[in-house]
Simulated scan of single mutants.
Amino acid sequence: METVILWTHAVAGAIWIGACACFAFAGLALAAGSAEQRNFVANAAPKIDLLGLVAALVLLATGVISLIWAAVSRGFAFPTTFITVLAIKIALFIVMLAVMTWSMRAGAAVRAVIAREPGGAAAGAMTAMVKAHVAIVAMGGIALILGTWLMGS
């Protein structure tokens, strides 16, 4: 069962990072202010973000379960390096979730503008949202590397 939880944790992290990478690539491929960009913000972006958010919640749940198992198996005695790496991963998770939440709120605001004015511009917000998703991908990559280290310790 522990192996299933660890794999679920790793896959959830990969899905979250992958969803954010897809968002960023799509956002970069669309012409600023185009109808395609508005359609992406209105239709596809919320679905991609929902996938990422669900994956983040699964990541949190499986991470807590894994930590409990590790604590019990080690008699609640962790080396300082383990605790430091874990603290960095937790901090990255919190920042990633905050950035994701901000981006989702920005997307909702842009969708409200687009609903009122179908020709409304989404370019500025889209640029910021793409940067947010790129940041999540970068932080997630670091967290995955640190997670691999934790598995070996």
Score class of each variant (00 low, 15 high):
13 G>L: 06
141 G>P: 00
116 R>L: 07
64 V>G: 01
18 G>I: 07
20 C>H: 15
35 A>C: 03
78 F>M: 15
65 I>Q: 02
93 F>H: 01
37 Q>P: 10
152 G>C: 15
84 T>P: 01
137 V>Q: 11
68 I>A: 09
134 V>T: 12
24 A>T: 13
3 T>Y: 03
63 G>Q: 01
79 P>F: 10
35 A>W: 13
100 M>S: 14
31 A>Q: 07
101 T>H: 06
131 K>E: 03
142 I>K: 04
84 T>K: 07
72 V>N: 06
34 S>E: 04
73 S>E: 02
118 P>W: 00
130 V>I: 15
2 E>T: 15
140 G>P: 06
22 C>H: 09
3 T>C: 03
126 M>T: 08
125 A>S: 15
15 I>R: 03
25 F>M: 13
127 T>N: 04
92 L>P: 01
14 A>L: 09
19 A>M: 12
70 A>V: 13
142 I>P: 10
129 M>H: 12
153 S>H: 11
143 A>Q: 01
92 L>A: 02
73 S>I: 03
5 I>L: 04
122 A>V: 05
33 G>H: 08
112 A>R: 04
43 N>L: 13
143 A>D: 06
45 A>Q: 08
120 G>R: 05
76 F>N: 06
16 W>K: 05
8 T>L: 11
3 T>P: 00
70 A>K: 04
24 A>S: 15
42 A>N: 03
24 A>P: 12
47 K>V: 15
101 T>G: 11
134 V>P: 11
111 R>Y: 05
56 A>W: 08
85 V>L: 06
1 M>C: 14
109 A>N: 07
20 C>Q: 13
3 T>D: 09
41 V>I: 14
137 V>I: 10
143 A>M: 03
148 T>D: 00
93 F>M: 00
58 V>M: 05
88 I>G: 04
149 W>E: 10
23 F>T: 09
74 R>N: 09
16 W>D: 02
102 W>E: 08
88 I>R: 02
108 A>P: 11
22 C>W: 10
119 G>A: 02
52 G>Q: 01
6 L>A: 01
87 A>Y: 07
129 M>C: 15
51 L>Y: 13
109 A>M: 04
80 T>P: 02
32 A>S: 14
128 A>G: 06
139 M>C: 04
61 A>Y: 00
103 S>A: 15
6 L>I: 11
3 T>E: 07
120 G>V: 00
48 I>P: 14
62 T>N: 01
10 A>D: 12
80 T>C: 12
116 R>S: 08
105 R>A: 14
135 A>I: 13
148 T>S: 02
96 M>H: 10
17 I>Q: 05
127 T>R: 14
48 I>C: 14
81 T>H: 10
67 L>E: 02
121 A>G: 06
17 I>Y: 13
2 E>F: 07
70 A>F: 06
139 M>S: 04
95 V>L: 14
14 A>W: 00
144 L>I: 05
86 L>G: 07
27 G>E: 07
41 V>F: 01
117 E>S: 08
152 G>W: 09
44 A>D: 09
39 N>L: 11
64 V>A: 02
91 A>E: 05
23 F>R: 13
34 S>P: 05
11 V>W: 01
145 I>P: 02
137 V>K: 09
125 A>D: 15
84 T>Y: 12
71 A>R: 02
127 T>C: 10
